[in-house]
Nucleic acid binder design. Structure first.
Lengths: 195, 195
DNA sequence: CCTACCGATCGGTAGG
DNA sequence: CCTACCGATCGGTAGG
């Protein structure tokens, strides 16, 4: 038991240090020897805990993907009265996942393309499915008169673009907490979508 | 003369193929042998035309940086009556640079961190300077009553985030031309910034 | 632009 | 978790 607990903890430790490394140098530029150095062990020893370098990337990418899904599942279940409310909550949920772990988000957004098949296809499909939720909010909002859009797809992209870029500049130690940033994004975007 | 012209053309060819490669696999995952294969020559032969792999990256990153600067310099010179107009023109200018060469934009946005010093510092300084232009538009717009912002810095980030993400999804062969996309972005963002 | 190579480093394995 | 290694591949050079 003691051993099992230790082993799990070490595996998580590897994931965390690897996330930091991938964030800093990128996946392919990060070597297992770099990672071993950060952990204070030999490169070969890492393979007692994981099968391959890519396994770490898979873990990070799909953990983040699941966190995004979990965050909007809450909103889907509640189903608010207005699409404006659904969108506001979704913006906050999405942004919260990013700001909670910027480094993992960076790996999620930038390093996923180094996944091999079939993981790569599974990953891109998950992202398409996820985007669909934002699409459906806007479509319902247009239908019921809440939103006036030049183009639904471009509007979805505006929203997600603005949100996704935040891992690059958001400072968790800075002046603004996630709620304030979400509020500001919602304000700008919703005013734009409504008229 | 003939030889000089040929040499320049070959160098540009290397840059173009490398851009494609870096876009597809990322800078560090792209090998000079990959690049040589695309060019139909041996890896060693590339070094007749360039000094190092990083030199190619530098060329692409700074060429794009200059294109962004050139695009807004036009606007700075003209200085339109309203900040709304300045912002609209800047949005179109910025977006045009991206959509004109998505692959080079992708390298510009993602691979710049593999630049070595002093290039890295020079690059990040250029980006800060560039962002400053958008900042100044919003600040003047707030001062003269055109814009009402919760927060200037966050608003700049909203704009640039939305625009910068476009290299990932914009399809030059698709339904929308750059002007339409810029129009849609301007519409959403400006309505949000004005109220 | 090629052949022939260099030293370094890569991800990963064997065996303990 | 270590030592000792593997074959492969890396960016780049010498010399033509």
């Amino acid at each position: 038991m003691q051993q099992a607990a230790k082993s799990i903890s070490r595996k998580k430790q590897i994931e965390l240090k690897a996330t930091e490394l991938f964030w800093q140098k990128g996946y392919t530029a990060s070597s297992m020897r770099d990672l071993a150095n950060l952990l204070g062990i030999e490169a070969a020893s890492i393979y007692s805990h994981i099968k391959s370098k890519e396994e770490i990337l898979q873990t990070v990418c799909f953990r983040m993907a699941n966190e995004f899904f979990d965050a909007i599942d809450e909103i889907k279940k509640n189903s608010y009265d207005t699409e404006e409310e659904n969108l506001k909550k979704s913006i906050l949920a999405h942004l919260s996942v990013i700001t909670k772990d910027k480094k993992a988000s960076s790996v999620f957004f930038n390093e996923w393309r180094h996944l091999s098949e079939p993981h790569l296809t599974r990953f891109t499909n998950m992202r398409k499915t996820y985007e669909q939720w934002f699409n459906s909010i806007l479509e319902r909002g247009v239908k019921n008169g809440e939103f006036k859009l030049m183009n639904t797809k471009l509007s979805v992209m505006s929203i997600l673009s603005a949100l996704n870029w935040s891992y690059r500049w958001y400072d968790p130690q800075g002046k603004y907490d996630t709620e304030e940033v979400a509020e500001n994004f919602s304000h700008i975007l919703l005013n734009g979508l409504k008229s």
